[in-house]
Design a protein around this nucleic acid. Sequence first.
DNA 1: CCTGCAACCCGTAGCCACTACGGGATCAAG
DNA 2: CTTGATCCCGTAGTGGCTACGGGTTGCAGG
Lengths: 136, 136
Amino acid sequence: MRAPRGLTIGRLAALSRVNLETIRYYERIGLMPAPDRTEGGHRLYDEAHERRLSFIRRGRELGFGIESIRALLSLAEPDHRSCEEVQPIAASHLHEVRAKLADLARLEAILAETLSRCKGHMSAPSCPVLEMLEAR
Amino acid sequence: MRAPRGLTIGRLAALSRVNLETIRYYERIGLMPAPDRTEGGHRLYDEAHERRLSFIRRGRELGFGIESIRALLSLAEPDHRSCEEVQPIAASHLHEVRAKLADLARLEAILAETLSRCKGHMSAPSCPVLEMLEAR
DNA sequence: CCTGCAACCCGTAGCCACTACGGGATCAAG
DNA sequence: CTTGATCCCGTAGTGGCTACGGGTTGCAGG
């Protein structure tokens, strides 16, 4: 009665909500360790892989880049565990997120305002959007 | 006293604030027409090119994709000029911008809140950021 | 006229983070 | 033992550029 260790890549993909091809990609770039294989060569994962992969997915969902996640993963290891070193990574990312946010908000305002001036004059020869793009 | 027609790619780049290599790229993908050349093969542009390139730059700055800009450019031509056809392109883009905006705002809130809980316990063994990534 | 050097030429490869494809091998259920 | 789902691997494509390298052209000063 050995534990049911041996998660196929497909089941790992479903469990961690990461695309199967993406898992292989993470292995290629060294973000996920190469797992054991069956005799026939199929990958076999365990719970530790699942935890690591879910960590990566949550990091990606928060917008961290692969290299930041690599750093965060090593800072999450029991020996190295350091909030002090995690903070600058997260803070720098937050800074970038805020910059993009400000940029997008600007675009949104311009687009919304310009489009609002389009309402109605469907068949008119003038177009606020085109005029903005041609603007001096 | 012929007009000073004949803008080198470098001067066009400076004038339109588009990278020189990007201009060549736009020509390769058919977004910019192939201009005349000097005897030696250097590209020579005119004001029409400058207007088109600036149109493209403004479109890119507003976040439109290359294919949308291609469509907008053709809808900006004197014969085809159609606000009616421009609107769905801009509206669809605005929709995408708003989706990204909402997504980024969500990230920002999570990151900011989590980081705020990091303040102070620099050398503590626990870390709100890591805990969130490991969550479950 | 000649030199020197900035500007230009072209094609290709690299960036990020995947995603898709194709053709073959393996696994597990019936 | 057959079938069909799953998995294998390597490579190429995505978007929108940017960088590189090695060669050619243009033009201003001497």
